Simulated assay, not measured.
Amino acid sequence: MRLQAPAPGEVLAWVVRGTMVESVHTGHLLALDAAGHDALRLGEPDQQIYPRSSLKPLQALGMLRAGVALTDEQLALACASHNGEPRHREVAAAILATVGLDAAVLANTPDLPLERSAALAWQVAGHGPEPIAQNCSGKHAAMVATCVAAGWPVAGYHEPGHPLQRHLLAVIAELTGAAPDHVAVDGCGAPQPSTTVRGLARAFARLAVAEPGTHEHRVAAAMRAHPHLVAGTGREDTEAMRAVPGLILKGGADGVHAGALPDGRSLAFKISDGAARPRPVVLGAALRALGIEPGGSWAQVTVLGHGAPVGEVLAAFGLDAPVMAGA
């Protein structure tokens, strides 16, 4: 197989242990001002990436356009990579119940809840990996309900050639302004189209500034009203949306994040090595570049040694970035 190697981008974060930089994370980042102009550009934001679960709000928009009827809680969960906590599982089951179905119809990958105590309680109750507990069950439940609403077959709803997936692909291309160069399979089994960091930032801005009464506004409003359902206990998406008024935010696997503010300021980035550890720090620095103080401790990442703090992850850009020797 012949592959095209992507550009690694610019340094976005350093991992400091003691008095030495232990690791360096590069990537691609774009912050847009309210007019859609580049406020901060690092790396190659027009390079194609897999946005992973950062696409879920766009997919949820496509489902609304196809006629699915969801409450605000259910819509927030359709946008989620949730922890699998009890309320997350309850809302996913409620989505399916609205169309007379149950979790047996879900085609996403069986898994345990992401959150440690929820996973323990789930297993103590006698459960193993199940689709309803997996972090994408809200999206998949909403996909099933969308098929019923639109008159599409439920069988094979996650396959690339299914009418639902073709419809969602068109919506994603419309909002991002970038037709995908690649379509792969995501971790949950659904199609994963590529896009660009710029396309993600642009799409989230469209959701964030949408007028009341539009499907776009419903997606943004649901995420703002129910940040716990979008992620869960201890997760940066939930904590950041609680801390920053009006922010909509969605992370994705392999180091992706995208978000936007009600005035249209937006951001997106991809950590080139796929690491999750620097994401909160890079996100906090990107928000500062847009004039927003993140608030709270969610944007800080401590490096531990023998259970005690011995360092931290630092953003390599922005006003708070330290000056490194030789820089």
Rank of each mutant, 00 (worst) to 15 (best):
P51W: 08
P51E: 04
L55T: 07
K56P: 03
K56D: 01
L58T: 02
Q59A: 13
A60G: 09
A60Q: 07
G62D: 03
A66F: 11
L70T: 01
L70N: 01
D72Y: 06
D72L: 10
L77T: 03
A78C: 08
A80W: 02
H82C: 00
N83I: 00
E85I: 06
R87T: 14
A92T: 07
A93R: 15
A94N: 01
A94I: 06
I95L: 06
L96I: 14
A97C: 12
D102G: 12
V105G: 01
L106N: 04
L106S: 05
N108G: 03
T109D: 00
L112G: 02
L112T: 04
P113A: 04
L114S: 02
S117N: 12
A118R: 00
A119C: 09
A119H: 04
A119P: 04
A121M: 10
Q123A: 12
V124D: 10
V124I: 14
E130V: 02
A133M: 11
A142H: 05
V154E: 07
V154S: 06
A155Y: 02
G156H: 11
E159M: 13
P160F: 13
P160K: 10
G161P: 02
Q165A: 10
Q165H: 12
H167T: 08
L168M: 10
V171F: 08
I172H: 06
T176H: 01
T176D: 02
A178M: 08
H182W: 08
V183Q: 05
V183K: 02
